[in-house]
């Protein structure tokens, strides 16, 4: 509405936005290009030929820290965190629709976890495991630490979803004789499925890239981001860039698959109209 009246302002703001996008993606683009350095190439420009040498170097066994193990653990942990985040957020989202004692307190605790300095959480979990004499592992204390980071996002998404949920759909299901479990299974979940994909995306990517909360709780075996942080301080070859390109590639793949799933769901819904008569039979 303002565009017609201020075409000049529009151009300035559009340029500003474009520069910001360049600022946002420029560095990542730089290391992507540099990861194709020739075998003799260094950490900065100019490019000394072009090759896949440094990618091959990443895959060569044990040339650099425990990157392979870190990668496997990060993927495994990311998947576990994703599944748990979706399941726990969905259950909690359903629970928060009715009144229960402690609801407000719990909500504020979850939000507090979102803005709590991660180093404090990590220190606390480490101290707890230390005092209890339990060994710190990526699948134990590490998993817990990641959940305190992903669940607030999941729960807030569920709130946003259920605030817009048309309750008449459930009433209709109930009137037709569906049990509460059947209503959730055949009415609620299909309707909110796209948002669950979103929660899963947050669950995986936030865990896959998590570093600050993990820092004190992983024990002897690191996840990939910690491995990377340890590597970067004494990196002397572009292998770190190749690794960065691959990691970013994994993230983009996950984002792409999620967005594609969302689009596919929306298309299917538009094409088929309602799912009436397809659920309960």
């Amino acid at each position: 509405m303002l565009r017609e009246t201020h075409p000049r302002t529009f151009r300035i703001l559009a340029l500003f936005f474009a520069l910001f996008v360049l600022f946002l993606y420029g560095p990542t683009l730089t290391i992507t290009i540099l990861s194709f350095q020739g075998p003799e190439g260094g950490l900065t420009f100019p490019m000394n030929g072009a090759s896949l040498h440094w990618f091959a170097e990443v895959f060569r066994q044990q040339s650099i820290g425990d990157v392979h193990g870190g990668f496997r653990r990060s993927i495994a942990l990311g998947l576990i965190v994703m599944l748990l985040t979706v399941a726990i957020s969905l259950a909690a989202g359903l629970a928060f629709r009715s009144r229960f004692r402690g609801a407000s307190l719990l909500f504020h605790i979850v939000v507090a976890s979102l803005i709590m300095p991660s180093i404090v959480v990590s220190l606390g979990i480490a101290a707890l495991f230390e005092l209890l004499g339990i060994e710190r592992t990526w699948w134990g204390s590490g998993l817990g630490a990641h959940l305190t980071w992903t669940l607030p996002f999941g729960l807030l998404i569920m709130f946003a979803v259920f605030n817009r949920f048309d309750r008449r759909l459930e009433e209709a299901a109930r009137d037709l004789g569906a049990s509460p479990a059947q209503t959730v299974r055949h009415v609620v979940i299909p309707v909110i499925a796209p948002s669950l994909v979103g929660v899963g995306l947050f669950g995986f990517t936030l865990s896959y890239d998590e570093l600050a909360r993990s820092s004190q709780v992983l024990g002897s075996l690191n996840t990939l981001p910690l491995e990377l942080q340890a590597m970067q301080s004494n990196a002397t070859t572009p292998v770190i860039y190749a690794l960065g390109t691959l990691t970013t590639g994994v993230s983009f793949l996950v984002i792409g698959v999620s967005l594609a799933t969302l689009l596919w769901m929306r298309r299917r819904r538009e094409r088929r109209g309602s799912d009436a008569g397809k659920g309960m039979v």
């Binding site: 399941a87 726990i88 957020s89 259950a91 909690a92 359903l94 629970a95 928060f96 629709r97 009715s98 009144r99 229960f100 402690g102 609801a103 719990l106 605790i109 979850v110 507090a112 976890s113 709590m116 404090v120 959480v121 220190l123 606390g124 979990i125 101290a127 707890l128 005092l131 204390s141 817990g144 630490a145 959940l147 305190t148 669940l151 729960l155 509460p180």
Partner: peptide, 25 residues
């Protein structure tokens, strides 16, 4: 009882990995 059962996993995670640890700090 249903909401309590549904919210229990969330509450448990935050009790064990957030409230107690931060108190412990």
């Amino acid at each position: 009882l249903a909401p309590y059962l549904l919210v229990a996993p969330l509450a448990l995670v935050f009790l064990v990995f957030f409230v107690v640890p931060v108190g412990l700090v």
